[in-house]
Structures are given as C-alpha cells and as structure tokens.
Nucleic acid binder design. Structure first.
Lengths: 158, 158
DNA sequence: TCGACCGTTCAGTATTGACTGAAACTTCTG
DNA sequence: CAGAAGTTTCAGTCAATACTGAACGGTCGA
C-alpha cells in the first residue's frame, strides 16, 4: 500500500477522515481501516508504520487507543518479541456499542439539565424533557436491534 | 444565564463540549443547548450573543450551520427586522436522521473499499465484508425503530 | 435619500491537538 | 551480563480551526 492513490490507499484515508469527523484521530481510522484489508491480517507495528507512512510513536499511541476501545486486538507469539495487531470481528461490536453509548451520554446531559431547571414551570421544561425522552428511548431500543442482528449472524455462521 | 457556574451554564457548556466531540463546533452545541432551555423560547441573535458571551459573527455562522442541518428554526415577525431563533421538536428528528446517516456513510466507505480489493480471494475480504454487512443492517433497521417511536409519540400527543 | 438597525463576511488571532523523532525503558537472546 | 530488538514516552513542531471584531451590505422608517 505504498501508493496513496491506489484503491486501498483511498479506503484507508477515507476511513481516517471519517473516524476523525467522529472525534477519533485520523490515524486511528487509518490504522483500523488498514487492519481491515491488510494481508496478512496480523501485522507488526513496523508493518503498519511502513504501510501508513507514520512514525512509531503515532502507531504506539493509536494502538493503545484502539485496543482499549476494543476495536483491535494485540497478540504475541512466543519466541517473537514483536506484537501483532489485528481487527477481530468483535471490534464491530465495540464500535456499535460505542455508538449506542453516545445516546446514553446525551440522556445524561439532558438529565443534569433538567435538574438545573427543575424549579421552572412544566411548559418551560418541555423542550428539554422531550429531548431526554427521545434519547432514553433510543438508548434502550438501538442495542436491541444490534444484538438481534448479532444473534442472527452467530446462528448463521455456527 | 450570566453565570457559567450555574446549572444552566453547566448544561450549555456540557452540550457544547459534547457536540464538539461529534464533529460540530462547541458554539453549535452551546447555542442549541441554550435554545432548549431559554425563556422565552424564541430569541434574537443579540439575546443569544449576550447569553453565551459570544460575538455576533459566531452566532451568525453557527445559526446558519444549525438551521441548514434542521436543528433550529429561524422565524421573523412583521414590523420587526430581527430574526428569532428557536429549537423546534423537529430538530430532534433531524438529529436522529443525521445519526442514521453515519451508518450510511460507513457502508459507502466499505463498498468502495470492497471494490478496491475485489481481485483478492474471499477470505482476504471477509473482514471488510462483515463490516459492510453490519453497517447495511444497522442503516436499515435503526430508522425503523426511530420512526416507530415518533409515530407512537405523535399518536399520544394528538 | 439619509440614517439606524441587523445580519453577514472575512482577515487575523489564539488555541487545540495530531504527528514526528529521539531518548528512555523493557525484554529476550547469546 | 552485554547487547540487540522492540516498544513507549515526551518535548517540539506544524497544521487545522474556532472564535473575535471590524468592515461591509441590505432593508426599513423618517
């Protein structure tokens, strides 16, 4: 993937820009995108640094971020001091879980806001109350949809 | 809302930080948050600028952003040259719609990536294919859940 | 037509933060 | 233990960008 104009390079870069627009760093998106399409699927830090034209430091920090958020997995092999990174299927679960967490965050903000204006008459709180109710509903229902899909998929593949 | 340590000020600031973490500007979050709790619900640009301690230029640009994305509404009154801003209930629909659009974007990226590696053997494309399938499913199902809730709510309030 | 009032635009500023690269640290091998 | 290979840390740099504030433009009333 030494050519950034290749299809693979474009995919990696696009994923970087996209995850960056969602609050992650561009490097996180590039690294995850690369791990989704690379061959072999397990790559060392040096492999990734070369493929993305990035420094070792950036790879190290980004790998920590992605690993703690569950998007990538780090494995080791005995007799080999290097670490191998890969994008396992469970990474998708984490991604969707994080997305669902956004709704939880918004509900929390709405609740604290409602507490702050609790003394006001009901009609003055209606907008924020509605916002809270919608978020609470979505927070509850979206994970159901996702787990339904995952269950269906697991049934199919087993 | 001249005191940023008040409950209302904290809510506004929290909303600002949150929407900023999602790719919008902090000012957009503050303005929307303020319009969710302000009294009266309709406010002029000068009102908002004073409440948020922001410049008129910032209000102008942010208002355009929020209005085009459907989060706020701008209204005028005859005999009054000023514009009035408010956070209508439909703003929530827009917000959820944008959230659903994220899944569509991810599916699009996955499709372009799959096209780029179409020549590879199937097992090498499995990770990206799975990513694509999950996104396509969520893109399809999440709007169903949301419209179900909105229909139920409209039935209740009418 | 002038003047007051609103809204928009835009160059400038300050801040944030992503990435680099070298040094420090850790861990395995000979 | 010595040395090499790999990883992490961190100070510094650079680019992106959110916001300010002044100048501009448009619109209505007198």
């Amino acid at each position: 993937m030494d050519d950034v104009t290749s299809g693979e390079g474009q995919f990696v870069e696009e994923m970087g820009q996209f995850l960056a627009s969602l609050g992650m760093t561009p490097m996180a998106g590039r690294m995850w995108g690369w791990l989704l399409i690379c061959d072999p699927p397990e790559q060392t830090a040096a492999d990734i640094a070369e493929a993305l034209h990035a420094s070792r430091g950036a790879i190290s920090g980004t790998a920590r971020l992605l690993a703690t958020s569950g998007l990538i997995r780090r494995t080791t092999r005995r007799g080999d001091r290097r670490e191998y990174f890969s994008a396992p299927p469970e990474g998708l679960d984490s991604l969707l879980g994080n997305a669902a967490g956004i709704y939880r965050q918004m509900r929390g903000i709405a609740e604290r806001g409602l507490a702050a204006i609790a003394a006001r008459p009901v009609e003055s709180r209606a907008r924020l109350q509605e916002f809270h109710d919608v978020m609470a509903f979505v927070e509850l229902e979206v994970p159901k949809v996702i787990s339904g899909f995952l269950a269906q998929r697991d049934r199919r593949t087993s």
